[in-house]
Simulated assay, not measured.
Amino acid sequence: MTRSEAREQAFILVFEKSFNQQDSLDTIIENAQAGRDLNVDKFSYRLAEAVYGHLEAVDALIDKYSTKWKLERIVKVSLAILRMSISEMLYMEEVPVSVSINEAVEIAKKYATEDDASFCNGVLGAVAKDLEKIKEELSQE
């Protein structure tokens, strides 16, 4: 499985979990494996786990950088993409920020609209611009 495919798989897991918030990530994966014979990639699992291991901090960043949009009003597809990409930028040092943003925009183009892709690109670009400061602030908490 390529990294792009693994990212897409992680996006789907994060998206599914947004509808089943009480279920653990492992339960979401078990249901996906049973329902559609899914074999979860290690990278996909790490990325989805990073999202839900740091959801409060990631959502606070989305809320801060998505000007004029409250978290509750963001389309679930875009929200899942933003959560995944910001988590990747913050907690997966081996992935270049530009790759994370580009992959997120491509997923948005595939699963959402051009407007959603532009919205995600704008939010992620703003986060990337302040990334070092954000990492410093998070490390002090």
Rank of each mutant, 00 (worst) to 15 (best):
L25V: 12
K110G: 10
K110D: 13
V40D: 05
Q140C: 00
K42W: 04
A108F: 09
Q21F: 11
Q33R: 15
L38E: 14
A60W: 00
S87C: 02
N39Q: 13
S98F: 01
L61T: 09
I134F: 01
G53H: 07
D23S: 15
E132D: 07
K133T: 08
E132Q: 08
G125R: 05
D41R: 10
A112K: 09
E93S: 11
A10R: 09
D41W: 07
I107L: 15
R3Q: 06
L90R: 02
D26M: 13
Q22F: 14
A104E: 00
D26H: 14
G125W: 02
N102Y: 01
D115Y: 13
K135S: 02
Y52P: 10
I74E: 07
P96D: 02
A48F: 08
A32K: 14
N39C: 07
L55I: 13
L124H: 02
S98C: 00
F11N: 03
E141D: 01
I107M: 13
E114H: 11
K68C: 08
A60M: 05
D130T: 06
L90H: 03
K70E: 12
Y52E: 11
V51I: 10
L90P: 01
D116N: 14
V14N: 10
R73N: 13
T113M: 09
A104P: 01
I81V: 15
A117P: 10
L38D: 11
D41S: 14
Y52R: 10
V14A: 13
K68T: 12
I28C: 03
L131P: 03
R46L: 09
G53I: 07
E56N: 03
K64C: 00
L55T: 08
E5V: 09
F15C: 05
A128L: 06
S66A: 15
E30S: 15
E141K: 09
S24M: 10
A104T: 01
L138W: 02
G53F: 08
I86N: 02
L25G: 10
R7G: 06
I81R: 02
N20T: 13
A48K: 08
A128M: 05
I28G: 01
I86L: 04
E136R: 07
A80Q: 04
Y91F: 15
I134N: 03
F11C: 05
Q33T: 15
N121K: 13
L79Q: 06
A117I: 09
Q21M: 14
A60S: 11
P96K: 07
D116K: 10
V99C: 00
A48P: 08
L38N: 11
V123F: 05
A108Q: 08
L124T: 02
